[in-house]
Amino acid sequence: MTTTTGPHPTRRLILQGTASVVLFGLGNLAFAPARAAANDKYPEDAFKQKSEADAIKALYGKTAEPSEKVKLDAPEIAENGAVVPISVTTTLDKVTSISFFVAENPNALAASYRIPDGTMPSIANRLKMAKTTNVVAIVEADGKLFSATKEVKVTVGGCGG
């Protein structure tokens, strides 16, 4: 048995390493929903994400599923990408927030609205679009995410020269 003392410390090290990785991973998982639930601070980080998927993850810490109960109203063709009227309304209950993403803008997240109890889950606003791409509306209802997507053709981009 004395000869086997050599490998033991190494194996222990490896096990310890794995354990800390697991803990670290769990820590991350535990943090994500807490951040989404807090929901009361300007989501600086989410606005800095480039892609739509990263922005959704940074904002909510989970993914959305498409739902027919989310109605996204946007023009087929927007002549001026600087001002694209977009609105969303939903028949879902317990809505706590609604967010708008423009897939190929420099930063995908355009606007996020917090909906307290008693406020209707229906919003109209105007967004800038760099080019023809998908507009995604995400509705957070009862802790779950639902989305609607529509492609808007942009003739003149609204994100700069």
Binding site: A111, T119, S122, I123, R126, G158, C159
Partner: peptide
Amino acid sequence: KEVFVADWGPAVSKDPYVKFSFK
């Protein structure tokens, strides 16, 4: 009582407009 909060990035149009309703 807070009825609506908007978090905006720079992709919201110039001279922004928003519409909502509450009970």
